[in-house]
Design a protein around this nucleic acid. Structure first.
Lengths: 199, 199
DNA sequence: TTGACTCTACCTACCGATAGGTAGACAATC
DNA sequence: GATTGTCTACCTATCGGTAGGTAGAGTCAA
């Protein structure tokens, strides 16, 4: 950095995190290597080990950043209580739509979940926490929508929450394979129609 | 084999396929090795290469067998037209429930989809075909149910089909990570309630 | 002001383990 | 005697990780 930038983390560490996140989301945790990152950034493998001693450390750092980013987003959505619950849901699904419109990206947690048995315990627990948090958050929004007469839930909110969350994660998985950009849009259309039905 | 068994494929080849299928479903395609199979069956790596020259060949054989098995099942379900559409759906989701009740298994196609970019093209196209076939099949059942007045669809059948298929695949993914056996049951409960709503 | 020292951030060069895959010997069977 | 199936022994490539060195910026006492 030539400018006087009071940044906390070094620029290199940040670049490593960014590329690692992309690589995990597209190829998976086991399938990306320190060499891939080294090649991508034009540095040596050992330099990555300097910033992130082990692959586990790097994986944890990537996931923690992702969780924090999403956590802030979830809190932000629920903050403005003047919004309709459907509007909140619309904001929630935005990242899914965005990922679905890239060629190969899926949710980071979804990518890690696909190879959960190959992951170190510290990563496993974080993916688990991500899933639980999101399903609970969705359940709360659904309850709110039902209480306000916006949604008509055919089943208890927590079950519908799991249904919707699974559908979003599944849609990303299917879309990456089939390449059909309508996969995610159709799922969201169906989801919203189901919630509005009878309202 | 000591008994006179007029089997087509050798017993060893069959055992290799069985174990490979299990390993892909639990660990993933990239994460299992010929050594794992050799250790599991008490044979040498080179013997596996005799039956399946490359890992790609083995992967294709496993997937083709799986697709054929499922294809026969789908045809079987739709055969008896005296059944209700909900009964057909119940039979369809049986394998998902069964996988969800194992510690770590997911759908073979789902497992492969998780690392689709690391797969040889021949495998990729098969996973793609599997997804398309199942979504089309589900759509047909939904249309039938709607026509018979069993289901009330809030959105076009193909969109609901994608919604349901994604939810089932996503539920397996989430369940394996969280270990919550209710994940799949809750999703199926919600799905059936949505379909019955208003009927 | 200068020399000794420390720390950061990178480097080259290597390690043992494991991956998928191959060559060829050796029995058993048809 | 050819075919089938399994073996031992080996190959090359790559993995995550380590050892040790170095250039440069900052610190600080003489």
């Amino acid at each position: 950095m030539t400018t006087t930038d009071p940044k906390q983390k070094s620029d290199t560490a940040e670049q490593i995190l960014d590329l690692a996140e992309t690589l995990i989301q597209t190829r998976g945790y086991s399938a990306f290597s320190y060499q891939d990152i080294a090649d991508g950034l034009g540095i040596r493998k050992a330099s990555i080990h300097y910033h992130f001693p082990s692959k586990t450390d790097l994986g944890i750092a990537v996931m923690d950043r992702y969780v924090a980013r999403f956590g802030a987003a979830l809190a932000g959505i629920a903050e403005d209580q003047s919004q309709s619950s459907m509007a909140m849901l619309d904001v929630y699904v935005e990242p899914y739509v965005a990922y679905a419109e890239t060629p190969d990206r899926v949710c980071l947690a979804g990518a890690l979940a696909g190879e959960i048995l190959a992951l170190p315990a510290e990563l496993r627990s974080r993916v688990d926490g991500f899933f639980r948090t999101h399903q609970i958050w969705l359940t709360e929004i659904l309850k709110r929508g039902a209480a306000r007469g916006e949604f008509r839930l055919a089943a208890p909110a927590d079950k519908v929450g799991r249904f919707i969350f699974g559908a979003l994660q599944g849609a990303l998985l299917v879309k990456r394979t089939t390449g059909d950009v309508w996969q995610m849009r159709d799922v969201i259309t169906a989801m919203k129609s189901e919630l509005k039905a009878g309202a």
